[in-house]
Design a protein around this nucleic acid. Structure first.
Length: 403
DNA sequence: CTTCCACAGGAACCAGCGGACC
DNA sequence: GGTCCGCTGGTTCCTGTGGAAG
């Protein structure tokens, strides 16, 4: 093979992706497989908007990655386009993600901007922004469908006042109407709402069931066709991504992430196609990121407890509450902070257990008492490297490492 | 059969803090 | 601009307990 051939070959091999954007979770494809029923129901409920009538408020719930956001955006966009083509201009809509727009002020400000009302970033009362939004909307003479995605974030942080105001907005409007769509993946959230809001918001309810493994395969195949070059995917790759994601309550987002990351890994190392091996590595990478994020955000004492467990389990198979506590005490003294009581440490160990970072099981050692045996469920090296990034612990961790 | 270890984990209470409410 | 209130993360004090050892 000539040098030129090799070069061309190499260049070709880098060509795994045709368009990786298509695998991003916020990309909305032209068709949404296995959500036909949901699309139909949602469209039926929203249809009156085209004629300028107010659709029922809707509450949508389902676990992460079940297509709630995609379906909602898809239906609204289609309806809007269709209405435009027919020369109807009776409704408008606003999509707000409450995780990003997480204060009542910003929610109202964003709504106001949708109805061409400009409000300052700050300086006026929240209720004033709301009033201006209503005035602006009323002038437009339209039905406005407001989508509040991840609505539980907003309510948890700032209460249900926003919802209360919005559900009652119609009483204050003369020419326009509003209709709400609330989306959440927290099933229990509904219970925490004021009954009046609940009944008003839940005029219609839509539940999105998780995808099963076969459905995930369809979704992945459809996207992969556009995202990857032909023959860039080995057999079994799609099936594996689907199976792994199905294990996590059928999360389509996770399935897409797996496929995307696997593709990126393959491309990075110049492979000619994505293999199952790449998928497993993608899973590990995703898992690693998750754990790193988790460890980073742990409070200081929890980090110290984790550090003691890590050090001890590197020496022995497992450790116990008592051992952990004595070692933790030393560590605390070492970096010059006040130690917590054993009672509290016991709880911290339980919390680490809940997070899946350690494994703690109560056992009785007869004569030698009752205790928890604690093992580490993640890679100890990873723990050390993440903890050493904490300036308060860096020195300590390095000292431990050097032994 | 009893004892007794080494904790588990419940209950009550407390300090500090951010937000609601005059 | 004080004060009241509920929440979080902590403490103190406590009773409970499975099973090896004696």
């Amino acid at each position: 093979m000539s040098i030129i051939d090799e070069l061309i070959d190499k260049a070709m091999r880098r060509h795994i992706f045709k368009n990786r954007e298509i695998l991003r979770p916020d990309y909305i494809p032209d068709t949404l497989p296995h959500r036909e029923n949901e699309i139909k129901r949602l469209a039926e409920i929203l249809l009156p908007a085209i004629r300028g009538e107010r659709p029922s408020n809707i509450f949508i719930y389902g676990l992460t990655g079940t297509g709630k956001t995609a379906v909602t955006k898809y239906v609204l966009r289609k309806l809007y386009e269709k209405a435009r083509i027919k020369g109807l201009d009776n409704f408008t809509y606003a999509y707000i993600n409450c995780r990003h727009t997480d204060t009542p002020y910003r929610v109202f400000a964003e709504l106001a901007s949708k109805v061409n009302v400009r409000v300052p970033f700050t300086g006026i009362a929240t209720s004033e922004v709301f009033k201006r939004f209503l005035r602006g909307l009323d002038k437009m003479n339209k039905v406005m469908i407001i989508v509040l995605d991840e609505i539980d974030f907003l309510v948890r942080k700032h209460g249900d006042d926003v919802l209360y105001k919005l559900t009652r907005a119609n009483e204050m409007l003369e020419n326009s109407k509003v209709s709400l769509i609330g989306i959440t993946n927290d099933i229990n959230f509904v219970e925490t709402l004021d009954p009046r809001i609940r009944s008003s918001l839940g005029e219609e309810e839509l539940v999105f069931p998780p995808y099963d493994s076969l459905q995930l395969e369809d979704i992945l195949r459809q996207r992969a066709k556009e995202a990857f070059n032909p023959d860039a995917i080995d057999s079994g790759v799609i099936e594996l991504c689907a199976a792994l994601a199905a294990r996590e309550h059928g999360d389509a987002r996770r399935a897409l992430d797996l496929l995307r990351i696997a593709g990126e890994i393959a491309e990075r190392e110049g492979a000619s196609k994505v293999t199952v091996e790449h998928v497993y590595r993608a899973r590990d990478e995703l898992e690693k990121n998750r754990v790193e994020e988790l460890l980073k955000t742990l409070p200081l004492h929890a980090k110290l407890v984790l550090l003691s467990i890590t050090v001890q389990t590197m020496k022995n198979k497992y450790t116990t509450t008592g051992e952990t506590y004595t070692y933790y005490t030393e560590l605390a003294k070492n970096i010059g902070i006040e130690k917590l009581t054993q009672r509290r440490i016991s709880d911290l160990i339980n919390e680490l257990d809940m997070l899946g970072i350690v494994n703690a099981k109560v056992i009785s050692r007869g004569r030698y008492g009752k205790t928890k045996i604690i093992t580490l469920s993640i890679n100890p090296k990873l723990v050390l490297s993440v903890l050493s990034e904490d300036p308060r612990l860096a020195e300590l961790v390095n000292h431990i490492r050097s032994r």
